[in-house]
Design a protein around this nucleic acid. Structure first.
Lengths: 338, 338
DNA sequence: CTGTTAGCGCCTTCAC
DNA sequence: GTGAAGGCGCTAACAG
């Protein structure tokens, strides 16, 4: 492989001149520039970026920590990160943690060992999170309230409250929740929104109406089974993501009940499929790609100025009303069993 | 930041010994090993991997070229790649090309400039592909037939033929196709399978029954509209992926027709959602994660032995029959309009 | 087993 | 505008 020295020799110049011709061509005479170009072309020279990075002590790389890349929402955020990173000359290293904390640590190590300059974390912050960490430049994307380092997120509490208020406005009083794992920060925020909306409407909070899910289809299905086994099932179910909502609709339909006539169902995230499934799902849209873009901009700025100020961006969300929700039945057919 | 020299000074040893203690501790005396460890701990020394890579001239990094990371199928393949890469000490650099060939080239450059050792390409090979390229170690994953470099794929032709044969066995004779873009290699392979199954059953091929889609929901919806506007619509529609199939079902239902009673619909890829939507979708499952794992194993082996042999792995697929397909109506209700 | 030393490829002074 | 030289952090080769 040709090195800068080979080019220098070929062009009859010094390595310093070649280097300058590459970085600041305007400060090299036209004649020599031509020689350099000819030599580069002849030798098919490609600068060794590994050497450049080593010398500049900058990897120009961002690690993205993601719990599960096969989740469309995360994938979209990553796509947004990539857009911005690429534009700014950064590469994106994928850190699929598969929810293992040892993997998480090994990715954080990459920053300590100079393989990466910073981290964008797509896992919400919990008490046992390895981040933030002294000397590690990190941004939390898709975070929850009270994340102790710079973050980009939506207002989960407000969004959930909005969903629940909408259901209340349709006359629903018994509103079930298919939650995420109880200790998941998003689940906590969204439950908070649910409770505040109920409180505003003077409806008592009934813990039995909260069923724990795990943000995947299977858990949505088993959760809805629990609701349907109740003597008085809810007339509406607020699911904390679309996967669980779609599964819930399936579960309800499999029992011969109808969405939204018998039970209304809402989701969260507004996946692409949610407007194509039947019935199209009422859901909360998050600007996933923009969250990614914003996070990337943020960390790149921090990296450049090395100012780790505690910004927090709250991005807008939008409640999208489709056909999975309707006015509550006065006498829900299921309760007639009683 | 502490360097290996600082550690050497602190431990009262030479840099060479520190280096050896780190790489081959068994070849350093126990006494000195302890000193080294103490010094490392005291200084909180972390080896500079950028320097290591520079010196070894190996980036231990694989670039994954993907058309669209927000597509679940690709995301799963990437997840598989990550599994294996991580185990073997490789990092995965994300190359979301957004179908831009300039972006594609810039990622390929990374190998030439030493930022990456090899490439796994998730875009199927076409005549204007930049890969394969002299001196670039690359593997094509999710490829189509006749890819001119090492590849991992399923038998798209066979899988499609299987789907169509199954539909034929249900009595369908007019089988529509919602295809990918006409020049997409997967679309080409799958159409080939469709035609061969028809030929085997002595059913003439009718070009009108092929409608071009683009592997996304919107195109599925508009394609199905074309079918339903026909004087004699097909009684079954073979969609080249699940997105388009789900959209097709929506389109059919919106017109007051029923799947599968009036029209059968099949998909391809077997996304998670496909078993949860209604009706659950008959589809072809591809082992996405395994395709990724296999690709990663392959390129790592090639990198190690620098033997660019032309292997081609064909992974198993599986036709999964669910409720979106049924026996053909003798008198399809739509044709009664005539 | 340990120390010494010479670079890897590049960029950046600093003279000229 | 250009050349010479030093050094980034690390490892490998060799000498002791």
């Amino acid at each position: 492989m040709a090195t800068i020295r080979d080019v220098a020799k070929e062009a009859g110049l010094s390595t310093g001149t070649i280097s300058k011709a590459l970085s600041t061509p305007e400060r090299v005479s036209a004649k020599n520039l031509a020689k350099v170009e000819a030599a580069i072309a002849k030798l098919n020279y490609k600068p060794n970026m590994l050497a450049q990075k080593f010398r500049s002590n900058e990897s120009k790389t961002i690690v993205v920590l993601v719990p599960d890349i096969a989740n469309v929402f995360f994938a979209k955020v990553i796509s947004g990160i990539e857009n911005v990173a690429q534009q700014s000359g950064y590469s994106v290293l994928l850190g699929d943690t598969k929810d293992s904390s040892s993997r998480e640590k090994s990715f954080i190590q990459m920053v300590e060992t100079r393989l990466a300059d910073g981290i964008i974390n797509l896992r919400p912050h919990t008490s046992d999170s390895a981040l933030p960490q002294e000397g590690i430049c990190a941004v939390s994307a898709t975070s929850s309230e009270n994340t102790p380092y710079p973050s980009v997120r939506i207002d989960n509490v407000g969004a959930s409250a909005e969903v629940v208020k909408y259901l209340l406005s349709l006359g629903h009083q018994r509103i079930g929740v298919i939650s995420g794992l109880t200790d998941n920060p998003h689940a906590i925020d969204r439950l908070k929104g649910y409770r505040s909306a109920l409180a505003d409407a003077d409806i008592p909070y009934t813990p039995d109406l909260i069923v724990e899910g795990d943000f995947n289809y299977a858990s949505g299905l088993s959760a809805v089974d629990q609701f349907l086994a109740m003597s008085e099932p809810p007339t509406a179910i607020f699911c904390m993501n679309d996967e669980m909502a779609i599964a819930a609709i399936k579960g309800i339909s499999d029992r011969g009940l109808k969405v939204p006539e018998d039970i209304s169902v809402t989701g969260f995230d507004d996946m692409d499929v949610s407007s194509y499934c039947r019935p199209p799902l009422t859901s909360v849209a998050q600007p996933a790609e923009q969250i990614g873009e914003r996070s990337a901009e943020m960390i790149i700025r921090m990296l450049r100025q090395s100012d780790t100020d505690g910004h927090e961006y709250v991005m807008p969300h939008r409640l999208i009303i489709r056909q999975s929700t309707a006015i509550a039945k006065l006498n829900p057919n299921v309760s007639s069993i009683k």
